[in-house]
Amino acid sequence: MSTVIVEELGPRGLRRARIATVLSLVALAAFVGWLLWRLAAQGQFEGRLWAQFVDFESQWPQFLLSGLWGTVRAAVGAMVIAAVLGLFLALGRLSPTTPVRVVCGVVIDVFRGPPVLLMIFFAYYALPQILPSGLAGAISREPLYALVIGLAAYNTAVLAEIYRAGILSLDRGQSEAAYSVGMTRGLAMRQVILPQALRRMIPAIVAQLATLTKDTALGYIITVSDDLMGRGRRTVQGSPINDLQTWFVVAVIYFILVWALTRLARRLEVQQRQKLGAGAMAVTGEAELDMLEEGAAEASRAEG
């Protein structure tokens, strides 16, 4: 793979690259070796600390893995809610009526500004104090609801910005053509703009799903018990004392799940780019969205 900086290497460059390859291999091997040696010296590779995770007779692997279902449920639940509410919020943000537009803009900024953990805390600690006791009891008994509500609130705002970026990325000619054949604003949005825009947003939405899936792990802090993190907590509390091994296994499971989603998003984005040419959406996740105010308009100008 050639990058911008490095040209095709000549004989001297190739020799240097080979030397650098050997040196960096040695350095990397030394680091990994040292790490493994340190861990081994602390007895972290003893079989009894790992046995639990491969002993399918004891049900521990099943117990841990079944937590994955709780994690997926929380992620999908929050995503579905956020996807629907986010669309309405985005349409409100683009509304020609000034008060609606302003209110939706403020809602988006307020929900997206603070950390997602604060949203989850709000759902878990504050909502039960505000809501009628029936609903409050449900949240207190099942922290998973609070996790889903908190994640949904935050991601509604994030998805609203993704939707908005997608809608703004469409060529103005699309809406102009729709109006000129006599469509109303609503009809043009439903029949012409959204079908095209939504398709463009799919990669960004999948990427956000990956981020959201990572954030479900925060449920640990509000004592969610039926997801991967909750199961991890139970494993750590038992014997033997295997914190390192447990969180390593949990990390690997999360990694596989999130990595698959990230890869899917990446692949969809590449497909999209090939189909649309240079005008494809480049929004790949929440990090890129943080200062979208001018971003969306600029992006469509720069890339179009």
Partner: peptide, 29 residues
């Protein structure tokens, strides 16, 4: 190596990384 690092740290929840280093590392010096 850089690709592997980026992939691991981007695709693992931050809280799990914190546990791995603080509690896991805590057991191993």
């Amino acid at each position: 190596a850089a690709m592997a690092y980026v992939s691991v740290f981007r695709n693992t929840p931050l809280i799990v990384l914190a546990f791995l280093f603080w509690y896991g590392g805590g057991r191993a010096g």
